[in-house]
Design a binder for these strands. Structure first.
Length: 531
RNA sequence: GGCGAUUUCGUCUAGGGGUUAGGACACAUGCCUCUCACGCAUGGAACACGGGUUCGAUUCCCGUAGUCGCUACCA
């Protein structure tokens, strides 16, 4: 276990590195969230620290059933492991915020007793009315005096209201006119004046739950979190968090902050959204998600045929770069070694799904052939085909780096590398199913099937008939001399016979896989069909 | 509107007061080859704009513009 020194306000303190990923279970995990979690994970591993999984379910109104399970399954698939938290144990629990009400109540009281927070009775409707009435209304030092709260009302009335169960909120009392500094690992010193901050709601009596801000600070403190690595959307409220640490007297152990830039949509402007994925045909979620309310299905990386290590590699490099030239192929272990928060880019990164496909392709062709059986087996099974592990290994060996034709968003026919597990079927179909028809207009067929070809194929077939040892070597021994002698180059036409189009592996290898009988049968059929 | 962040090839980025501004993806061409790919080689392609500071600025400072985020009893 490594312990690195951490500097807090110029005081050196030795603390074990502890970071957390704390999603809210309000839907499927966004791919940007996956990246945030990954960076936390890399940082924790690099420093031999702990990676905590916390559920921030303080908004009872937005809870979505199944979301928490979805998040856990996503990280399972990706191979990102937590050390403690919901479902992982640990002695800083409970890790689900809805189970920590007693704790938050206690700390709300601390702030109230210290006069650093106050009780407010203004209803959402009243607040809306104020916003209508006053331009740029903000609940702060300038306006709190005209609102219904414990600062403006007599104590007896406040107590009576609370006693009667009247709903209220607790607001943080912000002293105006102070420059609050946030020391950010990525962005340096960020200064915001406290006057522009509003008296944030910390706690709602209606559901007896804190808001994000309070729960976050209390939990991070109690769970001894040393570094808060989160999205840039939190930067504007970071000064509020600093002020909260100060109000509690926890400044000396306040975590260091690192605010990550956001993931942007691939084309045009704006943040990456679910709609972009639908429109451009790439997933924005790790796993397929079935919305329990609308029944809507959103595609996932796993179901699209991505490999988890490719998703991780691609995501890691969106906003971080080790700065070395050469290969960008990085294993999780290598990323752990090289990762550096201070080298994370400050500007948002457009999501480039073409490069994501490239990464996947690279991981596809680097995988050991024999490791494909589980995924490939599923693809084949979906087509009603059974194959042995040996057959699948053999097919993958021959095919895994081939191309596939596809139609892009503009309707253009294009070719691309085999990039996804789901590409395996269209590319390997002919291994298992013989061509039943031929497209005579196909460029490859047209070019390689001439007047004399049928006759040549018949001759070639009769040569193949004589092959006793039906292996690549056995065929070569008989056929190569014949090719030399006759001057006939049979390969492309032979490919038409066995595959039906201009793709596939080495012809001898394919023939060896199909067997003598099937090879000759396909040749006879093609000669018949193409005449 | 206010506040904050940000701006290097089409995209992800490296770099940094004097560089032929580097790499990866994508694109194009060539080589290899029984197809397609893989691989290899080559090529086109960028410092948002305007002022300073300086012998010299893409790099430092100040503006402007664009972009992103926040501005809830959401996280």
């Amino acid at each position: 276990m490594a312990i690195i020194p951490i500097i807090y306000n110029n005081v050196m303190a030795e603390r074990r590195v502890r970071v957390r990923f704390a999603p809210s279970p309000t839907g499927p995990l966004h791919i940007g969230g996956v990246r945030t979690a990954l960076y936390n994970y890399l940082f924790a591993r690099q420093h031999g620290g702990d990676f905590i999984f916390r559920i921030e379910d303080t908004d009872s109104g937005r809870f979505v059933p199944g979301a928490e399970e979805y998040i856990v399954e996503s990280f399972n698939w990706l191979g990102v492991k937590f050390d403690e938290g919901v479902g992982f144990g640990g002695n800083h629990g409970p890790y689900r915020q809805s189970e920590r009400r007693d704790i938050y109540r206690e700390y709300v009281k601390v702030l109230l007793d210290a006069g650093k927070a106050y009780i407010a009775f203004d209803t959402p409707e009243e607040l809306d009315a104020k916003r209508q009435e006053i331009e740029n209304f903000q609940y702060d030092a300038k306006t709190r005096g005209m609102m219904r709260n414990s600062l403006t009302m007599p104590k007896e009335e406040v107590d009576a209201l609370i006693e009667s169960g009247h709903p209220y909120v607790v607001r943080f009392l912000i002293e105006p006119g102070e420059d609050v500094h946030v020391d950010d690992i990525i962005r340096g010193d960020v200064v915001i004046n406290s006057s522009i901050l509003d008296d944030k709601v910390l706690y709602k009596s209606a559901d007896d739950l804190p808001t994000y801000h309070l729960a976050n600070i209390v939990d991070d403190h109690l769970m001894e979190v040393t570094h808060v690595i989160r999205g840039e959307e939190w930067l504007p409220s970071a000064p509020l968090h600093v002020l909260l640490y100060r109000a509690f007297g926890w400044e000396d152990t306040m975590p260091r902050f690192a605010h990550l830039s956001l993931l942007l949509k691939p084309v045009g402007n704006g943040k990456l959204s679910k709609r972009d994925g639908d429109k451009l045909g790439f997933p924005v979620f790790p796993l397929e998600w079935h919305d329990p309310k609308s029944g809507e299905v959103s595609s996932g990386y796993r179901e699209k045929g991505y490999l988890p290590e490719a998703v991780l590699n691609f995501l890691a490099l969106l906003g971080w770069n080790p700065g070395e030239e050469g290969s960008e192929m990085l294993s999780l272990d290598e990323m752990v070694k090289l990762f550096d928060l201070s080298k994370c880019s400050k500007n948002g990164a457009k999501f480039d799904f073409v490069k994501a496909a490239w990464f996947n392709h690279q991981y596809m062709i680097r995988r050991e052939d024999c490791e494909w059986a589980p995924e490939f087996g599923k693809v084949l099974a979906a087509q009603g085909i059974e194959a042995t592990a040996e057959q699948m290994t053999e097919v993958v060996r021959m095919m895994k780096m081939k191309v596939i034709e596809y139609v892009d968003a503009q309707g253009n026919k294009k070719k691309r590398n085999i990039s996804f597990v789901s590409d395996l079927w269209p590319l390997t179909r002919f291994f298992f199913v013989a061509p039943t028809e031929f497209d005579k207009e196909d460029k490859f067929v047209k070019k390689n099937w001439k007047e004399t070809t049928a006759e040549e194929m018949k001759q070639f077939a009769s040569v193949l008939e004589t092959v006793a040892d039906w292996s690549v070597e056995g065929m070569k021994a008989i056929c190569d001399p014949w090719v030399e002698e006759s001057g006939v180059k049979p390969w492309n036409a032979w490919r038409v016979c066995l595959v039906g189009e201009g793709q596939g592996p080495d012809m001898y290898e394919l023939a060896a896989f199909l067997g003598k009988e099937e090879t000759l049968r396909r040749m006879a059929f093609a000669v018949e069909a193409l005449n």
